[in-house]
């Protein structure tokens, strides 16, 4: 019976990005959440995918197949520092703003926001 309850409630595991974000905040770690808000072409991760990043550059989750996470983490450190959200855009056609591209040829927009307030 207990097992059934657990399944119905849906396991919120350590791999769940938003739960990880909450855990980090509860532990007093400063963090930012990056979310894929728009995709064009063959983007590796769907709209709504999350990456959570802390002030030391640790991260969980993914917003691409690993192509742009490094750049997102760098920008997220900036967002944690300044407290102001940012919108990032990545794609092979967009060489001017970003050196990092998606090898699959797709394009993605990512919203990076700080996690604010105290855990209650």
């Amino acid at each position: 019976m207990q097992e059934y309850q657990a399944r119905i409630d849906g396991p919120v595991t350590g791999l769940d990005v938003l739960s990880t974000a909450e855990d980090w905040a509860s532990a007093g770690r400063k963090a930012a959440i990056a979310t894929v808000i728009e995709t064009w072409g063959s983007a590796p991760r769907p709209v709504g995918s999350h990456l959570v990043i802390d002030a030391d550059g640790n991260f969980e989750g993914s917003v691409s197949g690993g192509c742009v996470e490094g750049a997102v983490v760098t920008e997220a450190l900036d967002v944690i520092e300044s407290g102001a959200p940012k919108i990032l855009e990545f794609g092979v056609a967009d060489e001017t703003a970003w050196q990092v591209g998606l090898s699959c040829g797709g394009r993605i927009r990512i919203f990076v926001e700080p996690l604010t307030g105290a855990a209650g």
Binding site: V12, A21, E22, A25, T116, G117, G120
Partner: peptide, 13 residues
Amino acid sequence: MDVGLLQTLNTER
């Protein structure tokens, strides 16, 4: 994102 909002969202999920 406000941490309180994130907690509420996770509770709902």
